[in-house]
Design a protein around this nucleic acid. Structure first.
Length: 815
RNA sequence: GCCCGGGUGGCGAAAUCGGCAGACGCAAAGGACUUAAAAUCCUUUGGGAGGCAACUCCCGUGUGGGUUCAAGUCCCACCCCGGGCACCA
């Protein structure tokens, strides 16, 4: 009889067909099993499933299948982030309506995900481009508005000329738009809507401690730096008019060394202090800075010819305007202490402003102004600081701050780098901000029963300038909900990061029409046990969604402080040196590979290529090996299903094969429980199969039965179609992913004897066999008497012998 | 400049707690089967030297030092690659 051959073209469609209608697992809240919520980050429907996607999804999918087989109640939902720029750009390019384009792609993506056999819970599917999702975005916005967490004001904001819209600070990278790497972001002053994420700065920072266990360290560090908390002191320097200039400093201990005050060019006092001659130069400075990449601004300053008094020593200091002082941080004004701050040093040397050292190293001398080549920025001991002289920096800061508070010219203060989240976008495609501008009543929120405020269907998307909604009269003209007179509807739409900030809650109750979700259903699943996504969202999505969770908690909707206990950041798939993505136009479609080798092979290959957290340069050499491997397993299982002839009864081969089997179960299980290095899991299964090929003819039917069953179960999370087919051929009922995960038996897995490595002076010279647990002395003796070792030791002095039980003997000799 | 990662065969990689470096796979070479090819199965494969041979020896994890009986793994200095932050007072 000819051997059965592995044919993915027969197997995959067959099971694909049977799984069509939600045959994959579906989680219910009333289940008595332990729960596990695994979630991959919301994908854009880009039309093609590329190999980068496959790699990301197989990680979560393998985990979900494993957890399910372990008896967990697993929620693994799927959704679509269909908003914003990709949709709008594609619409412009294809001359199609964004929503239509998006929905058609979602259908295609769903088809592809089904084809790959991903185990998503489709009953909880959601798309953030549906009107119901708008409704709850708007509902959240209005709740925040009521609590003062949403506000509108004019501010300097980031403007991307390519997107023709405003961007949040988090969405600017290297001075460029996060989606248009080469387009420099401009600064514009516009009226914008903001969410007050700064109100949660302290909590967002403090609760990072809860995440230290389960989140990658670098994400936590990035968030900590982004929030940028610094403790310091605010001090009022006074003009001769008595008007204060408040500065913020973290080094108040250096204040006796302050030799000038520098204001940001946008500082409100500048306008008052500047003379007619300098005014245009300040304006030029502002304009120049807006255009420039903040990275390479050359420090420049303008003296205002005015003075302010240092409250600690009564000294009058000249006031300057400096282009390197940021209006958006601290108070927008600094005291310059050139002797103890590098930037101030550079500035003051350039303009010949006095440099006055007042801090010396704990065991050193005060620097000399004339010979100083660089600022001394470390803490030290105060000198020439009046009553504070002789104090160490930390103590001086405490006492000086106390003095400022006691005498009313300053206070201890905490400043954050984090700024409020600008959510206004001048785009058509996004959730409309549900407010109306009324000449009589001002800004009036839309009443809840008028939600959702929907986008008008027919809008000419220009892709430039202001929101396209401004030209749609039916949308803009609306009566004021409060007084009924003619008013204007807000035309800004929300940042699409709003959508992604809470979608994972909606998944748990995706069809709720009364509320964004039911708190009870949510509390069962939350927090998410395992969240999977790219590191590129470390300070975008991952900080916004933490913020939303805290707001929801304060609204009484959820009880968890954090959305996800564990976060896994998978590596990027690189192609020709760039991240593989639709916007880079370098995607490799997974279709051709799937067509040729099958989706199982594509999945297995994606997992085998490298551990999942590692970036991977995409090369498809090697894919055939994985296809071969599946065929190898397939033939092995099918030809041994009904074997009758036995090898030597209960022979050595059985013991060997079962030992390898149970060792493999342990290795794969351990990998799932800890670090998900599926490449080594798969390698372990390959080793098992290689060994089975060697022992095949000597195995008893009993041993073979156990081996085949468990081998197929081990393959389940990695190659679901092939495993399912084999499972059926083994005569089993019920899908593989509903079977219990095999348990490893430590007795069967144990090696009969330990192999002990014998080293002489640290170099491998031989091996000996000994039972596990053999005494040190015995091992030492056995090693010394070994035929290979004996001549090497003869005539030399054995200095000492190191014995690591069950592992190694190292004989140190001399002479 | 500062803060994280990383550097191991021709290639992707493994070595999880300081204890056999290169598992597993690709590629390559040889062999079996075959009229032939494909497919499959088996063998070899870090570099170098020696031996008829089973085999033996030396070198080897970016570079240079160090700790240790023992270092890919720990410490110090440096080089290179990737990522993040970058006038945050």
């Amino acid at each position: 009889m000819p051997e059965q051959q592995y044919d993915h073209k027969r197997i995959e469609p067959k099971w694909h067909e049977r799984w069509q209608d939600g045959a994959l697992f579906r989680a219910e809240e009333d289940d008595t099993r332990p729960k596990y919520y695994v979630l991959e980050m919301l994908p854009y429907p880009s039309g093609t499933l590329h190999v980068g996607h496959i790699r990301n999804y197989t990680i979560g999918d393998a985990l979900a299948r494993y957890k399910w087989m372990r008896g967990f109640n697993v929620l693994h939902p799927m959704g679509w982030d269909a908003f914003g720029l990709p949709a709008e750009n594609a619409a412009l390019a294809n001359n199609r309506h964004p929503r239509e384009w998006t929905l058609s792609n979602i259908e295609e993506m769903k088809r592809q995900h089904r084809r790959y056999g991903f185990s998503y819970d489709w009953s909880r599917e959601l798309s953030t481009c549906e009107p119901e999702y708008y409704r709850w975005n708007q509902w959240f916005f209005l709740r925040m508005l009521e609590r003062g967490l949403a506000y509108r004001r004019e501010a300097l904001v980031n403007w991307c000329p390519a997107c023709a819209t405003v961007l949040a600070n988090e969405q600017v990278k290297d001075g460029c738009c996060w989606r248009h790497g080469n387009t420099a972001v401009e600064q514009r002053s516009l009226e914008q809507w903001f969410l007050k994420i700064t109100a949660y700065a302290e909590q967002l920072l403090a609760d990072l401690r809860q995440l230290e266990e389960g989140w990658p360290e670098r994400v936590i560090t990035m968030q900590r730096n982004w929030i940028g908390r610094s403790e310091g002191t605010e001090v009022d320097f006074r003009l001769e008019t008595g008007e204060p200039i408040r500065v913020f400093t973290t080094r108040v201990d250096t204040i006796f060394g302050a030799t000038c005050i520098i204001l940001a060019p946008e500082h409100p006092l500048v306008e008052k202090l500047v003379d007619g001659e300098t005014r245009p130069r300040v304006k030029a400075m502002i304009d120049a800075r807006r255009r420039q990449d903040p990275g390479d601004v050359v420090k420049e300053g303008l003296p205002l010819g005015r003075f302010a008094v240092n409250p600690y020593n009564g000294e009058a200091l000249p006031i300057w305007v400096g282009n390197f002082v940021l209006m958006g941080y601290g108070t927008g004004a600094i005291m310059a202490v050139p002797a103890h701050d590098e930037r101030d040093f550079e500035f003051c040397r350039k303009y010949d402003i006095t440099v006055r050292p007042v801090i010396r190293p704990v065991d050193g001398e005060l620097a000399d102004e004339a010979t100083m080549k660089m600022a001394f920025v470390d803490d030290g001991v105060c000198e020439n600081c009046g009553e504070f002289s002789g104090l160490e920096s930390a103590e001086a800061r405490r006492r000086m701050t106390a003095k400022a508070e006691a005498e009313g010219f300053g206070k201890g203060a905490v400043t954050y780098r984090l700024k409020d989240w600008g959510i206004s976008r001048q785009r058509y495609w996004g959730t409309p901000i549900p407010v109306v501008h009324c000449a009589e009543c001002g800004v009036v929120p839309a009443p809840d029963d008028q939600l959702p405020v929907l986008l008008p269907p027919d809008v000419a998307i220009t892709g430039k300038g202001r929101s396209p909604l401004e030209n749609v009269r039916e949308f803009v003209e609306t009566p004021c909900p409060r007084c009924g007179t003619a008013a204007r509807r807000e035309t800004d739409t929300m940042d699409t990061f709003i959508d992604s900030s809470w979608y994972f809650y909606r998944y748990c109750d995706a069809h709720n029409a009364q509320a964004p979700f039911d708190s009870k259903r949510i509390s069962y699943w939350f927090p998410i046990d395992q969240y999977i996504g790219g590191v590129e969202h470390a300070i975008l999505h991952l900080i916004y969604s933490r913020f939303f969770t805290k707001v929801m908690r304060d609204l009484g909707l959820v009880t968890n402080d954090e959305p996800a206990t564990r976060l896994f950041t998978q590596g990027m798939v690189i192609k020709d040196g760039a991240k593989m993505s639709k916007s880079m136009n370098n995607v490799v479609s997974a279709d051709s590979m799937a067509e040729r080798y099958g989706t199982d092979t594509a999945r297995l290959f994606a997992l085998f290529a490298a551990p999942p957290e590692k970036d991977l340069e995409w090369l498809d050499s090697g894919v055939e090996g994985l296809h071969r491997f599946i065929g190898r397993v397939y033939r092995f299982v099918t030809r041994n299903i009904s074997r009758t002839g036995s090898g030597q009864a209960a022979g050595e081969a059985d013991a060997k094969a079962l030992r390898k089997l149970h060792q493999t179960i342990k290795r794969v299980t351990d990998d799932f429980e800890t670090r998900w290095h599926f490449n080594t899991s798969i390698a372990a299964i390959m080793e098992l199969v290689n060994e089975l090929y060697l022992l095949e003819n000597d195995l008893t039917p009993e041993a073979m039965t156990e081996i085949l069953d468990k081998l197929v179960l081990l393959l389940g999370p990695f190659v679901p179609y092939a495993a399912e087919e084999l499972w059926e051929q083994l005569g089993k009922t019920g899908p593989v992913f509903k079977q219990a995960w095999p348990e490893h038996d430590p007795e069967l897995a144990r090696e009969p004897e330990a192999e002990i490595v014998v080293q002489v002076n640290g170099k491998l010279r031989g091996r000996i066999q000994a039972p596990f647990g053999t005494a040190r002395e015995t091992l030492e003796q056995q090693a010394l008497e070994d035929e290979k070792i004996k001549p090497m030791v003869a005539g030399r002095t054995v200095v000492k012998v190191i014995v690591v039980p069950d592992k190694l003997v190292n004989i140190v000799i001399r002479g």
